[in-house]
């Protein structure tokens, strides 16, 4: 569903991404872990074609995102760290605008249905979103992905700053999307949530994917141990990467 092949990106003289190879299948929640600047956001930006790769390809359902930017975006949904909406419009108006941008349209009742499925209080639906908390905006973001009937989701630290309850609700939504067969790629710092909701975990460091785990085979403590090992032993892995490149 989501596939990166030898994906490379340079900003100025700095290589932000060094030949990334990864695949996220439908029904997968792939969690990208790594320090700030490891290349997680760059990876997502490349899948969204916000920026063009210097080498390699990113593809969605077999379509190259640089060759078919509009086709691939029909299949994608994007939930950034802060879902930003038009503050002077209501949740329903925002949802309708973005759904229409994605080439879909529904009745008012169906829009309400999407918003209630993501757990937005019915009384909030017709309020202007400038009064919304971050958790509520993230829910609208998921509703947009639902309405778009996206086959693949790109999430960039969507739960950062959410309180535990909101974060938990968000994870529940991801599991629903997963059960619908969507391929989900999520950059996060939350090791606990990654282990709980993710199916696979990728650890990034300095533009490389240095490790991949299946969450079914490891405990939370394992994840933390492995992650920290990679972070501390950076020099060693960087050398190994250089010799293999």
């Amino acid at each position: 569903m989501l596939q990166a092949v030898k994906l490379t990106k340079r900003y100025g003289g700095i290589e932000a991404l060094k030949g990334l190879d990864m695949t996220v299948e439908g029904g997968d929640i792939y969690c990208l872990l790594g320090a700030n600047g490891a290349g997680k956001t760059t990876t997502i930006s490349l899948f969204l074609n916000f920026t063009e790769p210097d080498a390699g390809t990113a593809s969605v359902c077999g379509l190259d995102v640089t060759r078919e930017p509009l086709e691939t975006k029909k299949l994608l949904a994007y939930i950034p760290e802060q879902v930003m909406l038009y503050g002077n419009l209501t949740a329903l108006e925002n949802l309708r605008y973005f759904a229409q941008l994605g080439g879909r349209d529904y009745s008012r009742e169906e829009y309400r249905g999407f918003l209630s499925r993501v757990g937005l209080q019915p009384e909030a639906v017709d309020r202007r979103v400038k009064t919304y908390s971050k958790g509520m905006r993230q829910k609208v973001g998921v509703a947009i992905a639902l309405a778009k009937q996206a086959r693949a989701l790109l999430l960039d630290e969507p739960t950062a700053g959410l309180d535990p309850k909101a974060s938990n609700e968000f994870s529940e939504l991801l599991l629903k999307l997963k059960s619908d067969g969507a391929a989900i790629l999520m950059a996060t710092h939350d090791l606990f949530r990654a282990r709980e909701t993710g199916t696979r975990i990728g650890i990034m460091r300095e533009g490389r994917l240095v490790d991949e785990l299946s969450t079914g085979e490891v405990t939370h403590a394992d994840v933390e141990k492995i992650y920290l090992q990679h972070m501390h032993a950076g020099g060693h892995y960087a050398q190994q990467g250089a010799s293999s490149a």
């Binding site: 969204l48 916000f50 930017p69 509009l70 975006k73 994007y78 950034p80 879902v83 941008l101 994605g102």
Partner: peptide, 14 residues
């Protein structure tokens, strides 16, 4: 600046 540009361009709009 509002952050909506990325939201819009994640849709099939050039």
């Amino acid at each position: 600046e509002r952050g909506t540009l990325a939201m819009i361009l994640a849709h099939p709009i050039s």
